[in-house]
Design a protein around this nucleic acid. Structure first.
Lengths: 163, 163
DNA sequence: CAGTATCCCAAGCGATACTG
DNA sequence: CAGTATCGCTTGGGATACTG
């Protein structure tokens, strides 16, 4: 009998793994602010309305995972400040943000339209994500085929559930 | 003085709104299973390893938001069964899933490679998401410009934080 | 099977106070 | 400013038992 997708373990699923890292309640909102250009601790805290303790903990995790970096900087004549910036690994989450934004703009937006317009700097057209294949074709959800890959693992046998 | 992005309220942010709907701990995993083709209550429960109570609650929310539909069906000679399927609105979350998957495959994958291969049915090439503008250009994160849109709202004044 | 109901523990998180 | 520490509430969610 052929192995189908639903025979596979979800344990090493890249979606689940990603959610383990960024899928907790405030983490993606913190990253959203980072993509907005927010850098300083207080600014994150005030914009998100969260406690210092929570923010400290989230920053710790994100730095640990290499998604943000904490750097000190001095403005002349000022105290030392710290800032949190996206790393390249963090910046690669932009498609996730964009996909979330597009869905939200389509389905859960107020009547007055999007609060932020995101456009291609060179031509001014709205930016979003598209499903594409490596040959450059635009792909619909229905045109996609999913099959077990090299990392596929069978999940532990259920004791043969008979209804 | 010009209004900048960081002056805006985050209250009506489409990313935040989307996360309010699907950003809770198990919800995206439930949807992942739905995209895998899982339909029946027990199958979701066994694959995710969650309790009935949790699953019931999540299904309730997702149906309420029009992301899943619950339908009864009868197999001849069998009891009535129920299944949960993605609606069109739910299927539109596929780019979100794909973006999460791609990031995970790049950054948090085991050495043995992806458990699932996702390919374009017609040409066999791997499928992912790409940032594009409406004029069809492929766009880099750095080529994007974000400005306040029609739904922009100023956030409540902070009492002028002076460091 | 597809849930509902109850009980209870643990994690998430805000509030507050304090520190370098 | 950029945190750390503590407290205590509230929610999330597992375990178990029961129902149509």
């Amino acid at each position: 009998m052929e192995t189908t997708l639903t025979d596979l373990s979800t344990e090493n699923c890249p979606i689940g793994r990603t959610l383990d890292v960024i899928g907790t309640t405030w983490t993606l909102r913190v990253l959203r602010e980072a993509f907005f250009g927010v850098r300083r601790f207080v600014d994150f805290r005030e914009r998100l309305g969260v406690s210092s303790a929570l923010l400290t903990e989230r920053f710790g995790l994100l730095v640990e995972h290499g998604i943000l970096v904490r750097t000190a900087y001095e403005e002349p004549g000022q105290r030392t400040r710290y800032e949190y910036r996206l790393t390249e690994k963090g910046r690669e989450l932009y498609p996730v943000m964009t996909a979330l934004r597009e869905w939200g703009e389509r389905h859960v937006l107020d009547d007055d339209g999007p609060p932020v317009l995101v456009r291609h700097r060179e031509c001014g057209a709205a930016v979003g994500v598209a499903l594409v294949c490596e040959h450059g074709h635009t792909v619909g959800v229905r045109d996609v085929e999913a099959t077990p890959g090299p990392g596929a693992r069978l999940r532990a046998e259920q004791p043969e559930s008979r209804s």
